[in-house]
Amino acid sequence: MISIMKDKKKLQKFAAVLLTLALWQAAAMALNQKILLASPLSVLARLAVIWQEPDFLSSVWFSFIRIVGGFGLALVLGVLLAILAGKFPVLEIFFWPVFTAIKSVPVASFIIISLIWLTSAELSIFISFLMVLPIVYTNVLQGIRSTDKKMTEMADVFRIPWTHRLVYIWLPQVRPYLISACSMSLGLSWKAGIAAEIIGIPDGSIGEMLYNAKAYLNTVDLFAWTVIIVVISIAFEKLFLALVRYGFRRLARL
């Protein structure tokens, strides 16, 4: 019964996608101006060719490794800072202005300021790092704060070492917060990272491809590269979250 309902929902979603594509195609045909609105069929045709171009894989790899690198660094540092702030509450107050500033300053300001200090090739790592860090920190800290006090008391009475507390008590309780942080920040890291590349225009990046498409008014390319970014971002998000969930499942079998 549940399976049938899930299949029905999937079908409904698929139908919604088809309807949106049909509306997009109709609008493009009605407008008949490729520069203003590329049709989905022309984007699809371009996608069929674009991946065979010599620079395609290197451009995707260039952006992927930097954005994912920034995300990974932020994930590690965000978790570490949250653990420290959980252990020493004074650090939470100390970190507060930094994280509040990162969360409220527009990403474009950070990109422009960072360009003074960093090369354009380093920019997307830093910007994706900067956007992800406060999300991971805030969520994981919230998870640590919500740890069941009674379980901590149990660990105190039985004198459980902190490494075991980490695996058996803290990680399972932080898990939903960490997964939620990753889910929220993965898409954001791609959006911010690509925005940084469009402003910094590092050679051989997806951002450069998007910039060129805009400069030469090549709307079909612009749409095609946007589709590629969305696909890579979603695929990485799904893969990464599946790996995290698998890791936690393995942990539970200890």
Partner: peptide, 15 residues
Amino acid sequence: RISAVFQEDRLCEDF
């Protein structure tokens, strides 16, 4: 060293 049964079970539910 003390061991205890608490009023609540206080077990790690995932394990």
